[in-house]
Write a protein that binds this DNA or RNA. Structure first.
Lengths: 197, 197
DNA sequence: GCTTAAATATACCGTACGGTCTAATTAAGC
DNA sequence: GCTTAATTAGACCGTACGGTATATTTAAGC
């Protein structure tokens, strides 16, 4: 940001947005390294210099992509949480948000969690990897917070970790299967776990 | 395979093996797309033509890498299973094999499950992706088989899926954290789940 | 309507990629 | 010791990569 000033909102379909849209689609469905700058600008219908006027480098674009996917999920989660009536439903809203996000991508090639896939392409110390780690810890933190309405802090901790593993594990398997069905399975397992505990 | 015939065993440190060794290390720690052919042959101490005499292409090398990692895990699992004394221990042997495999990589940069990371780099219909899917289903099948000694087929099915999610989820989170600790956490959660059920 | 900034097209840069060719060398099998 | 196959070094290929330079056009703000 910074220099855009008064132009902050920008007109509909600004170069910045179209680029990030196209990059997000390609990064998710084809992978990051497999997606070249030229493919992005072609799909965005934009000049190459417009990309480099809006993003410092490809890896800056990747960072924006990662942040955006996490923000998308947070928005989906906020919607689900707003209509959840009980503590258990508020916990399951996290699973619902995962399902919503997955079903967004299902039509045009579901390949699992975009953040985990991105991290898998990044080297060990990369900033993007750390960002993904933080996002996943945030999700577990949300789970823990909601669980505190149900049980002791100690059990909330353990259960939050357990549910996070169910979430990420089912997402990994669902991505391999190419369909979000397994996410419903993990939601059901979580629901069962919460009612028996 | 096929044409090697009498030379099947090959001498120690054959080009084929040194190439696959080097490629496996690089693919795992740096990622597949980020690892060039030149980096592999340099690390293997081998001529470029030796690579193409042993592997048809880079993606053939990737397939060999995927198969090899799965075979490594199967071997670790077989060892763990052989000394497991009870049905529960035989189930936890699957978790132990995951831990063993992870700790192999911990010294030189732990980045989670090599198979899942590889799949994350492959396009939607790729053969390697399907291979990874099959391997993960095989692991779940092993869990289901061991669980049949403990409970009904229906509950074994559900529990196998549950344990598989715990496994893969904890592996994903552990990879992001850069340390295998969370695998011990999921093993403990699994043990608890098995004793209370 | 003038100014200022964003976005454009196009040519270009060096480099690295996956992969091939050739010719020479090494080593194993009989 | 001869044959046969594996391995080697190194030049080479076309292509695609991420990124830059420049000059021009488009469009928004006042």
């Amino acid at each position: 940001m910074g220099t855009q000033g008064r132009n902050s909102g920008q007109r509909r379909g600004s170069a910045h947005d179209r680029i990030l849209d196209a990059a997000s689609r390609r990064f998710y469905t084809e992978g990051i390294a497999a997606t070249g700058i030229d493919a992005i600008i072609t799909e965005a219908g934009v000049a190459k210099m417009s990309l480099y006027n809006n993003f410092a480098s490809k890896s800056a674009l990747v960072e924006a992509y990662v942040e955006r996917r996490h923000a998308e999920w947070l928005a989906l989660y906020a919607t689900r949480r707003a209509t959840a009536a009980s503590p258990v439903e508020r916990i399951l809203a996290v699973f619902d948000a995962y399902i919503d996000h997955a079903e967004d991508a299902y039509d045009h090639g579901f390949r699992g969690c975009g953040l985990l896939n991105a991290a898998a392409e990044l080297p060990a110390g990369d900033a993007g990897r750390h960002a993904v780690r933080t996002h996943k810890e945030e999700v577990e933190g949300i789970l823990r917070g909601e669980l505190l309405a149900l049980t002791t802090p100690e059990r909330a901790d353990a259960l939050a970790t357990h549910l996070s593993f169910l979430l990420e594990g089912s997402m990994a398997r669902a991505g391999l299967a190419g369909a979000p069905d397994l996410l419903h399975t993990s939601r059901a397992l979580a629901a069962q776990l919460l009612t028996t505990a």
